[in-house]
Every structure is written in C-alpha cells, then in structure tokens.
Design a protein around this nucleic acid. Structure first.
Length: 269
DNA sequence: AGCTCATGGCGAG
DNA sequence: TCGCCCTGAGCTG
C-alpha cells in the first residue's frame, strides 16, 4: 500500500539484492506463470522507479513492470525463501536474497519499447532528479479541477498519493478545493519543492513524516501516536480531532472516491 | 467467522 | 460516478 517513496525504496532494495546476477523467477500462484517461465534464470540488469511504477530490467531487453495498487506488497529479504504461504504472484530468488510479490494491480513483461511507452505516460516524479515540474505546472494552471484532485493525477504528480496530497496542502495552507487555475506560481513552486524534500525523506526513512520540527514538541505533548501508516502527520486520518495548529476540527470528505483530510481554518481557498 | 477499511487505478456507462 | 480488481489487518461478535 505504497505511495511513490515506497516504490523508490523497494527499487533500491531490489537493485542491491538482485542486480548483476541471474535470478530464479517463478509464480507460485500461477497468474504470472508465463512471464516467470520466460525470465527464469535470466540476469537482472537494473531496477527503476517512476512514480508508483517499478521496472525490473532483465537481459535481452525484457522488463517486468509492477504496480502495487492499493493492496500490493513486496517482501524482500536475505536468505532462502520460506515455504509458500498465501498467494504469491511473483517470486525472485538468488543465492543471497528472495523477493515475494503479492496482490499487485499490474505484473507484466514488457519489451524496451513498451517500457518506454509506459514511462512516457507517467508524469514528472518529484523524487526523480530528471523530473520537469513545468509539465505539471502547465496543466495545473490551465485546469478548473481542484488542486486536491490534481495532486492525485499521476500524469501531473507521479508518486503522490493520499497522504502526501493532504499533508503538502496543509503545510502550505492551501485548500484542496482551490481550482488549479487559481494556484499561483509561487504556491505551485512551493508545493513542488516541498514534495521533492518530503518524498526524498520518505524514501530514506521509509515512512511519511510531514510535521515541521518546530511543531513536533507541541504535538508530542498532545499524545500524538503513530498511526498505521507510520509517521507523524498534520491531518491525514485525523478527522474529528483538533488541528494541531489552530485547534479546530480536522475534516474529511470524499474526493474522487478517496478520503480527503484538511483543516478548513488553516487552509484557505 | 464476518465485516470494514486501506498509502490505486481501470473501464463501463 | 460507480463497480471492480487485488490482499491483509483490525475491528466486531
């Protein structure tokens, strides 16, 4: 259940564990049996993350494209793989490591061309140094869609998910309902720059921490607890609780079938 | 045991 | 906008 920072962490972990060596590939569950048979024993060349998409490169110009969706999970560990338990779509095993993939939305073999086409459909990713934020700005500034929805659009902000969108808007006191066209360049620039920092930090720490250091003592004093997502945040999943900064109730509503959290007092349209 | 919810995204209508 | 896909954790009883 990842946002982009988790996918980037996992791409790095997979690279350390598998790159440059042959790997046994199978699909205990059977739903990736054909792809597994094609790649079994091939050498892993590289791994790459673009937004929430992971690409595992194999010799002969083949790639495994994985998207975890809401439920997908990787388990990457040292040593021999444990006995199969549950539904494992894809398993990678070499002399030192193993990886198990469960519940992905996408797990497919792509050619070089198909991989390039897939990447061209993914928007700029704040975690990637080669990302061009102007691609996002051009669309945001011409859109009447709410910025809270635009932030979830992977063609604009690849890798951003429900936690980062809620938190980055809170940090900049921007209402999620403000139309893109009414987001100023300085506001957009602040959002983008902040995402690059927050998400890069997320890759390193493998959790989402968005609370500014100066607010941490206050929040700890109020019995802040780590929620299931792991990390300290301002508004995500805090509906009905007092805003840490103003004390008014954090709100939740549905925006495009996802829970959107915000503080109506701190965040202005 | 069964229900609900979750850091996503797709396609039908 | 809705239904659907995928899995597991955390409740309830």
């Amino acid at each position: 259940m990842p946002e982009g920072h988790v996918v980037h962490s996992q791409a790095k972990a997979m690279k350390r564990a598998f790159a440059g060596r042959p790997v046994a590939v199978d699909s205990p569950q059977g739903r990736f049996a054909e792809g597994a048979a094609l790649l079994d024993g091939a050498t892993v060349t590289s791994t790459q993350a673009y937004g929430k998409h992971l690409f595992i490169g194999f010799e002969a110009g083949r790639w495994v494209h994985v998207h975890l969706g809401l439920f997908g999970k990787w388990r990457i560990a040292k040593g021999e793989p444990p006995a199969v338990r549950g539904l494992i779509r894809l398993r990678l095993v070499n002399d030192t490591h193993h990886a198990e993939l469960r519940g992905p939305t996408a797990c497919e073999v792509l050619t070089d061309e198909e991989r390039a086409a897939a990447i061209s459909r993914i928007g700029p990713d704040p975690i990637r140094p080669d990302a061009d934020p102007l691609r996002a700005w051009e669309k945001v500034t011409r859109s009447r869609v709410a910025i809270g929805a635009l932030l979830m659009d992977q063609r604009l902000f690849a890798g951003v998910g429900n936690i980062y969108r809620a938190e980055v808007l809170f940090r900049h006191e921007i209402s999620p309902f403000r139309p893109g066209v009414q987001v100023s360049w300085p506001d957009f620039d602040a959002i983008w720059t902040d995402l690059t920092v927050l998400m890069a930090d997320g890759v390193k720490r493998r959790r989402i921490d968005t609370v500014r250091p100066e607010h941490l003592p206050e929040i700890m004093g109020r019995l802040a607890r780590r929620d299931r997502h792991g990390g300290e945040v301002y508004v995500y999943r805090r509906a009905g609780l007092p805003c840490y900064l103003c004390g008014d109730e954090v709100q939740v509503t549905d925006m495009q079938a996802r829970n959107l959290f915000w503080c109506p007092t701190c965040q202005r349209t």
